[in-house]
């Protein structure tokens, strides 16, 4: 059942993004930033965590989850260590996506060439 939810939710978000992209002057860069900010807003009341619980990995893979993680871990950091914890803990949840992308991209760049 989560398979169908994953497909529908992930597709639905991409559909919304495509509709915005086609009917405005925004670039994909605007869209990804917008959806990240949207994720951080949705995290305030914990909406997105509930969605992830229901939908599974389909919701986990979207860029919205990046913003969601940032807000959630900033909050967790405050609970643990106060104001310092916000800065210390904020990137914890998104660390995997950022560092994995940097490392993998750097390694693969060494071995491949841009096509002309």
């Amino acid at each position: 059942m989560t398979l169908i939810y994953s497909f529908l939710f992930s597709g639905f978000i991409c559909l919304i993004a495509q509709i915005i992209l086609d009917n405005s002057n925004l670039t994909p860069g605007h869209l990804t930033s917008m959806f990240t900010v949207l994720g951080s807003i949705l995290a305030v009341f914990g909406f997105y965590d509930k969605i992830i619980e229901k939908v599974g990995t389909g919701a986990n893979l979207l860029i919205i989850n990046f913003g969601n993680n940032l807000t959630n871990y900033a909050y967790l950091g405050y609970l643990r260590e106060g104001v310092l914890g916000i800065f210390k803990n904020m990137l914890t949840g998104s660390s995997l996506a950022i560092s994995a992308t940097i490392i993998i991209a750097a390694i693969i760049t060494v071995f491949t060439k841009a096509k002309d």
């Binding site: 994953s6 497909f7 992930s10 495509q18 509709i19 893979l61």
Partner: peptide, 24 residues
């Protein structure tokens, strides 16, 4: 436009679907 919507929905869904299959 309609084709774009369909493609985006299908491909976005497929990414989520494959991700969920991998997780399971």
């Amino acid at each position: 436009k309609f084709k774009n919507y369909l493609y985006a929905f299908f491909m976005g869904g497929l990414v989520g679907f494959i991700g969920e299959i991998l997780t399971i």
